[in-house]
């Protein structure tokens, strides 16, 4: 086959196809991703109230940002809660999911049943998960208080509600992680394990020294998924109490300010920009790892 010599070699039709394949996704990305993102950043410098032409909005400079970090009390708790969320999804869900995946990978009896059982919550929306757990958590009618006789208001008390929500979120997230690792484990070359066994490696050594390094790409996917889940965490706390009173998250603050009756579009956009910056950090880390691998 002749070597590809550049665009001149392509027929007219091919060129049109190539052009379309580049232009259409670019337009979509610019229109759906970049335009909203940039306008959101621009809006964050104004005091637009969401009504009437944007031209009427006043340029506020960095005032919104200044207000967010100085006089908006829910902001720092929200950042803290997002970080806790990230830590828990990463430190609890991920090892648990990996552990379940390793167990299920052992081809034990009825492993399909377990697999389905653990994966089932992933199919449910987080909003629905919130409702399901309400049945367990409810102060007066819930299963937990019914069994233990405690009077703790799991969703209402700010001392507990973040953790209660995290348990519910992990319940769902673990299944997802499990499936990712399970797929990864199935892909591990059997000969590697055999070679390890021949060399006299123990079960533990085989896993940590052989299998786990092979799973590196999965680990990155899991890392990214966890970060995305932590930043996206929204529906669950929104159905619980609209992200107030101990369940503040950056995403709920953005919604409260922009979507609600308040309509502080400028202020809310400043919050959204903070979210954009935080996610950019993780995206940069992710891209760095991926790029390094490709080299």
């Amino acid at each position: 086959m002749a070597r590809y010599k550049g665009i001149n070699q392509l027929s007219g039709l091919d060129r049109i196809v190539v052009a379309l394949m580049i232009v259409v996704p670019t337009v979509l990305v610019v229109w759906l991703v970049w335009l909203p993102a940039i306008s959101s950043v621009l809006l964050s410098f104004t005091n637009w109230n969401g009504i009437g032409p944007i031209g009427q909005a006043k340029w506020m400079g960095l005032k919104n940002y200044h207000d967010v970090v100085t006089i908006y009390p829910p902001f720092w708790p929200a950042v803290r809660h997002n970080l806790i969320w990230l830590a828990v999804t990463f430190l609890v869900s991920t090892p648990l999911g990996m552990f379940l995946a390793v167990l299920l990978d052992k081809e034990m009896r009825a492993s399909r049943v377990y697999q389905t059982a653990f994966y089932l919550p992933v199919v449910l929306s987080l909003a629905l998960v919130g409702f399901i757990w309400q049945l367990l958590y409810s102060r007066d009618q819930g299963l937990i208080n019914g069994l233990t006789g405690s009077k703790i208001d799991w969703y209402g008390d700010p001392k507990y509600n973040l953790w209660a929500a995290l348990v519910a979120a992990c319940w769902r997230h673990t299944g997802y992680i499990m499936l990712l690792y399970l797929a990864g484990l199935k892909g591990v070359d059997v000969s590697l394990r055999e070679a390890a066994r021949v060399d006299g490696a123990s079960e533990k050594q085989t896993f940590f020294k052989i299998v786990f390094p092979v799973l590196a790409p999965i680990n990155i996917i899991v890392l990214v998924v966890s970060v995305i889940e932590a930043l996206r965490a929204f529906d669950l706390v929104w159905v619980i109490n609209k992200g107030r009173n101990g369940l503040e998250l950056i995403a709920t603050l953005v919604t409260q300010n922009i979507v609600g009756e308040a309509s502080r579009i400028g202020f809310g956009s400043a919050l959204a920009t903070f979210m954009l910056l935080i996610s950019s950090v993780f995206i940069a880390i992710y891209l760095r790892i991926v790029m390094k691998e490709q080299r």
Binding site: N49, P74, N245, Q256, N257, E261, A262, S263, R264, F267
Partner: peptide, 28 residues
Amino acid sequence: PDFASTVMIPAIQDFIKNPADIDNLVKN
């Protein structure tokens, strides 16, 4: 409405949670 929903709702809920610190609450 922006003052009522984004300032007063969290402020009053904060007060109910922690009624001790009125000075900081009203300053904020």
